Simulated assay, not measured.
Amino acid sequence: MDRRTALGLAAGALVLPMGRRAAAQAFDHPVRLIVPFAPGGTSDILARLLAPDLTRAFGQNVVVENRTGAGGNIGADLVAKSPPDGHTLLIIDVSTLATAPSLYTRFPFDLKRDLAPVTMLIYAPYILAIHPSVPARNAAELVAYARANPPRVNVGHAGVGVGNHLTGLLVTQHWGADLTQVPYRGGAAALTAVAAGESQMIINGATATAPFCKQGTLRPIAVTGPARLADFPDVPTFQELGWPAADSGTWQGVLAQGGTPAPMVNRIANDLRTAMAVPTTAERIAALGAVNRVEGPDSFRTWLDNEIEVWSRVVRANNIKLD
């Protein structure tokens, strides 16, 4: 066999794998972007912000679908049971997703096996906010009022066991106040209820909560994260106040069905990275109080595995079960 023939055969051998890789990366019908919460929450805002750019990148329509219920697990289960071809994606607060395996004794899917991390997208700190009828202007006054009047303070949250519910438990336990935790069907419903005075306090992602605070329908008291928010410079951080869960917040990420080919996962991750860097999108995300945290599938999986372990300890300590 001469050198030219050998090189020709080698090149021919590469055609099939490369062809398969290209096919795995191609979108041949519309893509469903599943939001497992009601419209108006952080996941929904981000999905609708990214959908037009992803439509252009994928060459197929990206359709945002809200599939609510069970603290996000109904939507997540839909994706987990979809074909592993990258055409059904989940956008979710992944801290909330990480709590699910420890909350349910009968869980409909295996999180590590049935969902494939694609990329983290953003981190948005939580804002602890209250209805203006609560007679408190700052953290000290709120803690004193909550301790003295626990029946008068209901804490609205996005669902039992989700990230803002568990953060609320940790914080109010730290206060020594036995407050009533009220679950709603997602963060948007909880925000609406607190803004209407149905519940009196909420801990929720800044992306969705900040507009209510700017309008005066909610009063911001404290924020999570490493620094105060530019829009609320007088509102202290949990860390400044010595409260627990200072690093909690809403971590939005995208996952595909487990078994989706790695080239397809990488293609989606790269397209999301590009979409997140579009100047108008980046400006909108910053204006919503969020930080771009796009990273690859491997580091996202490591982060998610750690979150599962961290929040499982909180769930066990509070004996929370959903079945």
Rank of each mutant, 00 (worst) to 15 (best):
A275P: 06
L288Q: 12
L14S: 05
Y126G: 13
V315A: 08
N270C: 05
A24E: 12
G225S: 10
A38D: 09
G258S: 10
V155T: 01
T172H: 12
W251P: 00
S82P: 02
I91Q: 10
G12H: 04
I127P: 02
N318S: 07
P183L: 08
N138T: 03
P183H: 07
A277Q: 14
A136D: 04
V64G: 03
E307S: 10
R316K: 15
A317L: 13
G12N: 06
Q60T: 08
F37A: 14
Q173C: 03
G186E: 04
V35N: 13
E198I: 07
W251V: 07
G59H: 02
A210K: 09
W243R: 10
R293W: 03
T42D: 14
G19I: 05
C213K: 09
N270H: 14
G8S: 11
Y123E: 15
G72F: 04
R152S: 11
A256N: 06
P30A: 11
P183F: 06
E283H: 09
P297E: 15
V134T: 13
N154D: 13
G186C: 03
D323V: 02
R147V: 06
A227K: 11
P101G: 11
I268Y: 09
I127W: 07
P52T: 07
P279A: 14
V235Q: 10
A208R: 05
S199M: 05
A282L: 11
L14E: 03
N270G: 12
D110V: 02
S82K: 09
A246I: 00
T167I: 07
F212W: 13
H87P: 00
D44Q: 04
N73A: 15
G163T: 08
G289M: 05
A227Q: 11
L255H: 03
P125T: 15
D298F: 05
L111D: 09
I221D: 02
L9C: 07
V118G: 04
R301D: 08
N61M: 08
R267T: 13
V143D: 02
L179N: 08
R3W: 10
S95R: 10
W303K: 15
G8A: 14
A287E: 11
W311Q: 12
A70H: 06
V162I: 13
T237I: 03
L229A: 10
G242T: 04
I122R: 04
P84M: 09
A146H: 12
R113Q: 09
A177T: 00
L166C: 07
P132D: 13
T280S: 15
R316W: 04
G242W: 03
V35Q: 09
E240L: 08
T280M: 14
A269E: 05
S312V: 00
L89Y: 02
A144K: 08
G19W: 05
G187H: 04
Y123D: 14
P84Q: 08
V310W: 07
A140M: 12
E198M: 05
V153Q: 06
V64E: 07
P108S: 13
I221W: 05
T280Q: 15
F232K: 08
A11N: 06
D323K: 03
P220Y: 13
V143N: 02
G69A: 10
M276S: 10
G187K: 08
V235T: 15
A98G: 02
L272M: 11
A230D: 13
L33D: 01
G59R: 04
R21D: 05
V265L: 15
P39T: 11
M201K: 01
V160I: 15
L166R: 06
A290Q: 01
L170K: 11
Q173P: 00
P132E: 15
